[in-house]
Amino acid sequence: MTFHEVYGGEPDGVWAAPGRVNLIGEHTDYNDGFVLPLALPHTTRVHAARRDDGVLRLHSADSGAQTGDGVVRLRVDELEPAGAAGWAAYPAGVVWALRTAGLPVGGADLHFESTVPTGAGLSSSAALEVSTALALNDLHGLGQDPAGLARLCQRAENDFVGVPCGIMDQMASACCTEGHALFLDARELTWRQVPFDLAAEGLKLLVMDTRVKHELGEGEYAKRRAGCEEGARQLGVPALRDVPYERLDEELTRIATPEVRGLVRHIVSENRRVEDVIRLLDAGDTRGIGTVLTDGHASVRDDFRISCDELDLVVETANAAGALGARMTGGGFGGSAIVLVEDALTDKVTEAVDAAFDAAGYRRPRVFPALPGRGAHAE
């Protein structure tokens, strides 16, 4: 359905925000660390019209079976955390976050359509939030910059939806630029755009969406975050970002439990891996990052314990077939892996993974290249 078919009028404009894939830096953002995401060409688009009567109407072309006209109707002055269900909680939470920040959002009619795969660990929720925030920012003249909108979107997801995510997804969706990865310091909220033109070097970064999401993952994200906070408490630091990599082995002897010890080891070593990838990219050695990606997968598999059989199979098979490196990306327990591969070996690696999934009785993954796209924008 179109905006006109849903609401009977025309939108004031169309805004888009991308999903993201994280090159390296998994679960480091809520530990005040470093991340290196890039925006995908897949976007959530919102057709939006301003309202000044305090009414918020939401409709998604992608929400599947719907009752009635499928429109969610809310009042902006009655929004409270957990006051909206399902996909609508994300845009409603953005409106709530904007208003609690003292910004004059009067209401809107919003119609969403998206090409960002859901459940693939590619930040479909952040794309939904950031597209909403940018549309409302322009419609109501709020004057917020992209980083400010990203922070408010994170608050919406943390405090309204109830997901304790870090800032990476929203910052990537809001601030990435085409042809670049975003090197972000999640504590200082400083960043720089790192050129990432794989095609010029005869390389591809493949996203392999396993199309599985294991129920074990429900609630495990929050447990990992709480475990990281416990590790920082035991070490007497504000966040695990403050643990020096050079003293990691010594510091680990102070951690009481093996589970927390593994979380600490992953976060501290993962921050170092982000810095290693940046050094390699700055030196023009893009191929050299492959081994760092694979090391990162071993860390999320063994220390952070968020991988799964399907993701491990992608990584093992792709590397055995000649990939330069591979790792899972996103929150874990399913979703996607990324594979760095010579362009000439793309078909060989993809066919090897397909064959391995066939042999294991899994549905073949959905494969597409990660082409660094632009951040949120008006169309």
Score class of each variant (00 low, 15 high):
residue 14 V to Q: 11
residue 17 A to T: 07
residue 19 G to K: 02
residue 23 L to K: 04
residue 26 E to T: 07
residue 37 P to E: 06
residue 44 T to W: 00
residue 45 R to T: 10
residue 47 H to R: 10
residue 52 D to W: 07
residue 53 D to K: 07
residue 54 G to E: 14
residue 64 G to R: 08
residue 64 G to H: 07
residue 72 V to W: 00
residue 77 D to C: 10
residue 83 G to V: 05
residue 90 Y to V: 11
residue 96 W to K: 05
residue 103 L to I: 07
residue 104 P to M: 14
residue 108 A to L: 08
residue 109 D to T: 05
residue 124 S to R: 02
residue 137 N to E: 06
residue 143 G to V: 03
residue 148 G to C: 09
residue 148 G to H: 04
residue 151 R to N: 13
residue 159 D to E: 15
residue 174 A to H: 00
residue 180 H to K: 02
residue 185 D to K: 03
residue 193 Q to F: 08
residue 194 V to C: 07
residue 198 L to I: 10
residue 200 A to I: 00
residue 210 T to Q: 06
residue 211 R to L: 14
residue 217 G to H: 03
residue 238 P to W: 01
residue 239 A to N: 09
residue 247 R to M: 12
residue 248 L to K: 08
residue 253 T to P: 05
residue 255 I to S: 10
residue 258 P to K: 13
residue 264 V to A: 07
residue 268 V to L: 09
residue 269 S to T: 15
residue 270 E to D: 13
residue 285 D to R: 10
residue 287 R to S: 12
residue 298 A to L: 15
residue 300 V to Q: 10
residue 308 C to G: 13
residue 312 D to M: 09
residue 319 N to Q: 14
residue 322 G to F: 09
residue 330 G to L: 08
residue 330 G to H: 07
residue 332 G to M: 03
residue 340 L to T: 06
residue 344 A to W: 06
residue 346 T to D: 14
residue 351 E to S: 14
residue 352 A to H: 03
residue 357 F to Y: 15
residue 358 D to H: 05
residue 362 Y to C: 11
residue 369 P to M: 04
residue 376 A to Q: 04
